[in-house]
């Protein structure tokens, strides 16, 4: 009886420890669905950036239901100057597709037909709406930076 208890105890202990470590390390290394969307976007965005190692995401908020994403990021341009952006992006089919404009800047975006009504005021309105929506998911920038570097 004692031998049986010992055996069950040891097997349970091994299973618990293996599951604990396994799950923890798996989650540490694996991006979730929202993080995957943002990583795909970041990889696309980085293609236009000369110094890729300077690209850092500071904040990212995704609202899949409304189809918008607000991303704050910075990078060094070709002249080595730091560029900081806080942009609103439109999502389509679980992908971040169209840049609607920078919330802080005055740069006029070259928007495709159908997106012309996204004026600066309209963007700020959307940003406030997204930030206050309970269904908006804000992503962890530490995790994103780490997963992007891989």
């Amino acid at each position: 009886m004692l031998k049986r208890i010992k055996r069950i105890w040891i097997v349970s202990l091994i299973i618990i420890i293996a599951i604990s470590f396994g799950l923890s390390i798996y989650l540490y290394n694996t991006p979730d669905e929202n993080e995957k969307i943002l990583i795909n976007w970041a990889n696309e965005r980085m293609k236009d950036i000369t110094y890729k190692n300077t690209f850092k995401i500071q904040e990212a908020e995704i609202n899949k239901e409304k189809g918008y994403c607000i991303i704050s990021y910075h990078y060094d341009d070709e002249q080595g100057e730091n560029q900081s952006c806080r942009e609103v992006w439109k999502m389509e089919d679980n992908e971040i597709k169209t840049n609607l404009g920078d919330l802080g800047g005055t740069k006029v975006m070259d928007l495709p037909i159908g997106y012309l009504n996204y004026t600066s005021d309209k963007l700020k309105e959307i940003a406030t709406e997204i930030e206050n929506d309970s269904k908006t998911v804000s992503l962890d920038s530490n995790r994103l930076t780490r997963l992007l570097e891989k």
Binding site: I16, I19, S20, L23, S24, L27, Y28, D32, V137, S138, L139, D140, R143
Partner: peptide, 19 residues
């Protein structure tokens, strides 16, 4: 607090609570 609860925090939390 500026950080949202992600899957990792929930699952690791569950592991910690069970252990």
């Amino acid at each position: 607090s500026g950080i949202s609860v992600n899957t990792e925090m929930i699952v690791d939390g569950l592991i910690i609570v069970i252990d």
